[in-house]
């Protein structure tokens, strides 16, 4: 009994030693280059600092202003949450389906993978500008194509009901990463599982439901968490294409942070908004993480 306890603690000790040995590089980075900036920005959020970072302590005034007076603050959170709710589920479904199709012993797999990855490689400022033209109400490509069917398309990015949806579509286009990760996850499933299923005569559909999906849950979980974190920080496309318009319908929280910090010179208030966003993301990912054991399947 005593001996067993002793050996347990030896394993624990070894695990602890190994754990810190392996995470050391990251730990160093985290403590020096992440914790300090985060604390700094937290303290800033309680000041009225301008862009030179100097300002007086004003308690919770920034937070009170954000929650009681700044209408764009709520608008930004509303838009961001709408975007997350639309983008994340769609991105998961599409990337999983494409990843799965690509795993089905397709010919020219390399070519397909390159094609689906292409948007991710090219998605920079240049392509964002191209998308702007595609969505243009009068001269854009989409409305040109629609005109063949006798449909007069809306003024996509200029219509407050469609603008955010356009940005969702743009980002769904560049799913290369997620598809690749899904594919890697699906291909990592040991062939033995399928072999035994085939012996049992399970259909493709059944294999998908009972083997591929459950065994891909760690990958899906990964894409879910990352998708949520990234989607909450949506910035580039609305910043370049709509500047938050029309009538604040595409203004996002990250954009608000950026504008306050670097355009309006309100560093303190920008930090306050950023920390609100941080807390929201923390809570949501925290909830997902605590429920993960119910649906994420780890083989150990």
């Amino acid at each position: 009994m005593n001996k067993k306890k002793k050996s347990m603690s030896a394993i624990e000790k070894r695990n602890t030693r190994n754990f810190y040995f392996y995470i050391f590089p990251w730990l160093l980075f985290f403590i020096v280059l992440t914790v300090y900036p985060m604390i700094k920005s937290l303290t800033l959020s309680f000041t009225d600092s301008s862009f030179d970072g100097k300002g007086a302590f004003i308690g919770f005034e920034n937070f009170i202003y954000a929650f009681t007076q700044d209408t764009r603050f709520f608008q930004a959170f509303k838009n961001t949450i709408c975007y997350v709710l639309a983008y994340v589920p769609l991105s998961l479904v599409i990337s999983f389906l494409l990843g799965w199709l690509l795993s089905r012993h397709i010919k020219f797999l390399g070519l397909w993978r390159t094609i689906f990855y292409l948007p991710y490689i090219t998605s920079g400022v240049a392509v964002t500008i191209l998308w702007g033209w595609i969505f243009n109400g009068s001269y854009g490509l989409i409305n040109y194509v629609l005109s063949f069917f006798g449909i007069t398309g809306p003024n996509w990015l200029g219509d407050k009901h469609f603008a955010l949806a356009c940005i969702v579509v743009m980002n769904l286009w560049a799913l290369g990463n997620q598809i690749l990760i899904m594919l890697a996850g699906i291909q990592d499933i040991p062939a033995s599982y399928y072999e035994s299923a085939q012996i049992d005569g399970a259909s493709t559909w059944k294999q998908l439901i009972s083997i591929t999906i459950p065994l891909s849950t760690p990958t899906i979980y990964f894409n879910l968490v990352i998708g949520i974190i990234n989607a909450f920080q949506l910035f580039n496309q609305p910043y370049i294409l709509t500047q938050g318009g029309p009538v604040n319908s595409t203004v996002t929280v990250s954009m608000l942070v950026f504008q306050n910090a670097f355009e309006y010179g309100k560093m303190g208030y920008a930090s306050c908004i950023a920390w609100c966003l941080f807390v929201v993301i923390m809570i949501i990912t925290g909830v997902i993480q605590t429920t993960q054991h119910k649906w994420v399947f780890y083989d150990d």
């Binding site: 033209w133 969505f135 243009n136 009068s138 990015l157 200029g158 709509t242 318009g245 029309p246």
Partner: peptide, 10 residues
């Protein structure tokens, strides 16, 4: 005059 989006997209 065209509206605001035209300015951003073309």
């Amino acid at each position: 005059m065209p509206d605001d989006t035209a300015q951003n997209t073309i």
